[in-house]
Computed example of a mutant assay.
Amino acid sequence: MCTTHLLVAHDWVAADVGITDVLPGACLVCGSRLGVRYPSGWLCAVCEWRLGDVPDFELAPPRVDVVYYVRYRDRVKIGTSGNPRMRLTAIPHDEVLAFERGGRPLEQRRHAQFADARMEATEWFHLQDALLAHIREVAAGVDDPWHRYDRWVSAELARHA
C-alpha cells in the first residue's frame, strides 16, 4: 500500500475503533492513565469514563460488595464488605490476597467450602492447599486486587452516570 492509502486506512480505523494512548491527565473516576482517543474525544480505557465529564462527588459512591481474602501470618481471613478500604484498616493483615465480587451469601458459601480449615468460631482459616488453590484461581491474572476492586467501582459508577 502506498503512504496515502496507509494514512487513509489509519484514519478510518482510528475513527472506528479509536487509538489507545496515554490520557492527557489521570481519569477522575479510576485514576487510570490509559485511554482511547476517538475523533469525538477520549474515554478511559479501564472504566470508559469520558475525559472532561466531572463525576458528582457529592453522591455516595456505588456499593460494590466483595468477599476479601487477607493473610495474617499463617492464616487467612475470609470476610465481606461493601467498603473494603475502610474495613481492612480495622483488620490486622500482612497482605490482601484477593477480592471476589459478592456479598454475605457468597462469603457463607466460602466459609462452608473451607470449614475443615476454619479456626474455631471465627472467620479465620488455616492455610491449606485447597484454600490457597481457590485464592490463586480468584486472583488469576490480577497483579493488584485493589485495581480489580477499583475497576468494579468505576464500572458501577459509569453504569449509573
Results as ranks from 00 to 15, higher is better:
residue 1 M to R: 10
residue 1 M to C: 05
residue 4 T to E: 13
residue 6 L to F: 07
residue 6 L to M: 11
residue 6 L to I: 04
residue 7 L to C: 06
residue 7 L to G: 08
residue 9 A to R: 13
residue 11 D to M: 13
residue 12 W to P: 00
residue 12 W to S: 10
residue 13 V to Q: 12
residue 15 A to P: 06
residue 19 I to G: 00
residue 22 V to E: 15
residue 25 G to Y: 10
residue 25 G to I: 09
residue 26 A to N: 02
residue 26 A to Q: 10
residue 26 A to E: 10
residue 27 C to I: 07
residue 28 L to A: 15
residue 28 L to V: 09
residue 32 S to Y: 01
residue 33 R to W: 04
residue 34 L to A: 08
residue 35 G to V: 03
residue 37 R to V: 07
residue 37 R to F: 09
residue 39 P to V: 05
residue 41 G to V: 08
residue 42 W to I: 05
residue 43 L to G: 01
residue 48 E to S: 13
residue 49 W to D: 06
residue 51 L to D: 03
residue 53 D to K: 11
residue 53 D to Y: 12
residue 53 D to N: 12
residue 55 P to F: 10
residue 57 F to D: 11
residue 58 E to F: 14
residue 60 A to E: 15
residue 61 P to L: 12
residue 61 P to A: 13
residue 62 P to M: 04
residue 65 D to V: 00
residue 66 V to D: 03
residue 66 V to A: 04
residue 67 V to C: 11
residue 67 V to G: 01
residue 68 Y to V: 04
residue 68 Y to E: 02
residue 69 Y to M: 15
residue 71 R to H: 02
residue 72 Y to G: 00
residue 73 R to F: 05
residue 74 D to Y: 06
residue 76 V to Q: 01
residue 78 I to E: 01
residue 79 G to I: 08
residue 80 T to E: 11
residue 81 S to V: 06
residue 82 G to E: 14
residue 83 N to T: 12
residue 85 R to K: 09
residue 87 R to H: 04
residue 87 R to E: 03
residue 88 L to D: 02
residue 88 L to E: 01
residue 89 T to P: 00
residue 91 I to G: 01
residue 93 H to E: 06
residue 95 E to N: 00
residue 95 E to T: 02
residue 101 R to V: 13
residue 102 G to T: 07
residue 103 G to C: 01
residue 105 P to R: 00
residue 106 L to P: 00
residue 107 E to G: 00
residue 108 Q to L: 15
residue 110 R to M: 14
residue 111 H to Y: 11
residue 111 H to E: 09
residue 113 Q to E: 15
residue 115 A to D: 14
residue 116 D to P: 00
residue 116 D to N: 08
residue 119 M to I: 15
residue 119 M to C: 06
residue 120 E to A: 12
residue 120 E to H: 14
residue 121 A to K: 14
residue 121 A to V: 05
residue 123 E to L: 14
residue 124 W to N: 07
residue 128 Q to A: 15
residue 128 Q to L: 04
residue 129 D to P: 09
residue 130 A to W: 06
residue 131 L to P: 08
residue 132 L to H: 02
residue 133 A to L: 06
residue 133 A to K: 06
residue 133 A to Q: 09
residue 133 A to G: 00
residue 134 H to M: 01
residue 135 I to W: 01
residue 135 I to E: 01
residue 136 R to C: 03
residue 136 R to S: 10
residue 137 E to M: 11
residue 138 V to Q: 09
residue 140 A to S: 15
residue 142 V to S: 08
residue 142 V to Y: 11
residue 143 D to M: 09
residue 143 D to K: 08
residue 143 D to G: 15
residue 144 D to L: 06
residue 145 P to A: 08
residue 145 P to H: 07
residue 146 W to G: 05
residue 150 D to V: 12
residue 150 D to A: 15
residue 156 E to D: 03
residue 157 L to M: 07
residue 159 R to W: 00
